[in-house]
């Protein structure tokens, strides 16, 4: 047998094997079975982790010299451009949905309330990590101000940015929403939050991966269910790329 035909045979066998693999990985049944792992992870991790257990905090010396910008670095909407031009003077954080007192908070009002500063590690789902100091308003204090109803199960963060016209959004459950380290950060490393990192405010939910840390937060919506919101899976990455809603690992 010549080298060439042996090679084509190898390629043909390889392609057949790959086609077989692809049939397995794209099968809906297989995908459904695999989600059992995700469910076990959520239940297992919630069981093992005290709801108020704090993510590790670091010393100023640990702060990354350069913090990688990921996802969008400048929302393209004209509304956002207008807010940016005015230094977010007319910007309001809306709190709506299943709340007794819907809110429209200015940046100054956010900063006037209780504040928390923490040096924490940001872990991208891709594998890299960076450490920064964040200052912001605890989400719990905003939720208390708004008075969320007993029916609330999730908080949805609607953001100013989009991917190919599809708006970015994320969601967390009440365990993470009322966690003491969950803040709406307006300050990063003692400077106003840079636009590339999500100005005017971004969510910091420190026990979750990077894709949960929604940037450019415009509106927080208290909801009973994630069904019916965009793709229904609780976030842009969950809807469009199949990332796990629970991003604890």
């Amino acid at each position: 047998m010549t080298g060439f035909s042996r090679r084509s045979m190898l390629v043909a066998t390889g392609s057949a094997a790959l086609a077989g693999c692809e049939r397995i990985t794209t099968s809906p049944t297989v995908r459904k079975v695999l989600t059992l792992g995700e469910k076990a992870t959520l239940s297992g991790q919630r069981f093992l982790t005290d709801r108020n257990a704090l993510a590790p905090e670091f010393a100023p010396v640990d702060i990354s010299p350069r913090f990688r910008v990921n996802g969008n670095f400048l929302p393209r909407s004209p509304d956002f451009a207008a807010h940016l031009a005015k230094g977010f003077a007319d910007w309001r954080l809306e709190v709506s949905g299943l709340v007794r007192r819907p809110l429209r908070l200015t940046l100054a009002e956010l900063k006037a309330g209780p504040q928390r500063t923490q040096i924490t590690r940001h872990d991208c789902v891709e594998g890299w990590s960076a450490i920064a100091e964040w200052t912001g308003t605890p989400l719990a204090s905003i939720l208390k101000m708004a008075g969320i109803s007993d029916k609330t199960q999730y908080l949805v963060f609607h953001c100013a940015d989009d991917f190919s016209g599809m708006p970015f959004y994320e969601s967390i459950d009440l365990v993470d929403a009322f966690h003491p380290q969950t803040i709406l950060a307006h300050t990063m490393n003692r400077q106003p939050l840079p636009v590339a990192h999500g100005a005017p405010v971004r969510l910091r939910v420190e026990r979750a991966l990077g894709y949960k840390q929604a940037k450019y937060v415009m509106r927080i919506e208290a909801v009973a269910s994630l069904a019916g919101i965009y793709g229904g899976k609780g976030g842009y990455w969950e809807d469009h790329s199949g990332y796990q809603w629970f991003a604890g690992i």
Partner: peptide, 19 residues
Amino acid sequence: IPNYYSLAEGRQWHFFFAW
């Protein structure tokens, strides 16, 4: 696994078989 690049799917496989 899968035999194309999908981080989300790779993670699904990884965590199921990790359990």
